[in-house]
């Protein structure tokens, strides 16, 4: 009996090696878009909650001085980021980090550059309560929103009673953000079988992306990220994820979350510190392999592309742009 079990186990092992080797070869279908937006069972997507969340997202009264909303930095005009090297209000910080987009955040497995939030609901309150951002606190915010009559029907519709709580604010903000999904891009049409949807240069770029440049080791799936954390060897003192997890995990020092490559802003800025403004510079950084240090990601393996290959790779990245989302700003409730 024991013998049979170990046999089966051994056989399974052999089989799985082959299966996973096949799996590591990327094909177009690995980039297929999902059919529906995921949401946690305790915070399902509803029209009413989306409406409330959108209103909150655009309302500057969520900040202490009533001068900054979530949309100030996650702006529709900048692909739900801000187009700035350093976020508004963080000019005085020693290690500011670029504003990430909130597009496709329904699928995120870890949030913030250092992964310190693990759900959109948990993340939603962070900018509101961060001193150099919206600089408020949830207790006073709940009170302030309670005094704005126009919010009562919105909360009532979303939760079946008009009570305002921190949790309900966070749930609604998370729900609205889940609806910010990239438009179908020319790459998506190519994935679906339209051979002429992207140029032959972009198609060659796709091969380089998955092959020689190994971008897909981390920029994986239809979102072009697997939400993994890596030190990519940038000359930045920021310890990133290394600051929020045990210090003995060397590989996480200077590590930041892999950002999506969909809907990239034309001139960046790129990288967690906004230190690069064009894609060629970014690609050359990966070719060079970054600063050699103990924490450097094992996926940072130097390689060399020709001028034409770089052009192809950039042509491919441009096919991931689905254009700006068609979302009308809400009418803010009256006091």
């Amino acid at each position: 009996m024991m013998k049979i079990r170990s046999l089966v186990m051994l056989a399974c092992t052999v089989f799985s090696v082959h299966a996973s080797l096949a799996e590591d070869k990327f094909t177009r279908s690995d980039y297929q878009r999902p059919e529906a937006i995921p949401a946690p069972a305790n915070n399902p997507l509803t029209e009413e909650k989306i409406t409330l969340g959108k209103t909150l997202f655009f309302d500057p009264r969520l900040s202490r001085n009533k001068d900054m909303s979530c949309a100030t930095c996650h702006s529709q005009d900048h692909r739900w980021s801000d187009g700035r090297v350093v976020p508004l209000g963080s000019e005085e910080l020693t290690q500011p980090r670029r504003t990430p987009t909130v597009m496709n955040s329904a699928w995120l497995k870890a949030l913030m550059w250092d992964g310190r939030a693990n759900s959109l609901e948990a993340q939603a309150v962070l900018p509101i309560t961060t001193a150099h951002e919206m600089n408020y606190n949830m207790k006073e915010l709940v009170q302030r929103l309670g005094e704005i009559k126009g919010y009562q029907p919105l909360f009532d519709a979303a939760y079946d009673d008009a009570e305002i709580t921190t949790q309900r604010i966070a749930m609604a903000l998370a729900t609205f953000q889940r609806t910010l999904v990239s438009n179908t891009s020319s790459f998506d049409r190519w994935v679906e079988g339209d051979e002429d949807a992207i140029s032959s240069s972009a198609q060659r770029g796709f091969e380089i992306f998955n092959g020689k440049a190994q971008c897909a080791a981390c920029h994986k799936s239809w979102r072009f990220t697997d939400d993994s954390f890596h030190d990519i060897g940038l000359d930045s003192p920021d310890r990133g994820r290394g600051k929020v997890i045990p210090v003995e995990v060397t590989i996480m020092q200077h590590a930041f979350k892999t950002p999506t490559l969909r809907d990239l802003p034309e001139d960046g800025p790129f990288m967690h510190d906004g230190s690069m403004t064009d894609l060629e510079e970014v690609i050359k950084h990966y070719e060079d392999g970054g600063i050699q240090r103990e924490s450097l990601s094992k996926e940072m393996k130097p390689f060399e592309l020709t001028e034409q290959q770089r052009t192809d790779l950039i042509a491919f990245l441009k096919t991931l742009d689905g254009g700006s989302l068609d979302i009308d700003p809400p009418v803010l409730p009256m006091e």
Partner: peptide
């Protein structure tokens, strides 16, 4: 693999040892 542990069928008990092989092409 690249993104998960392959499903196991054994019943792990105290003092057992797990020998885990990284079959993906990433660290």
């Amino acid at each position: 693999t690249h993104h998960d542990f392959e499903e196991w069928t054994f019943t792990p008990r105290a003092n057992d040892t797990l020998a885990i092989t990284n079959k993906s092409d990433i660290a």
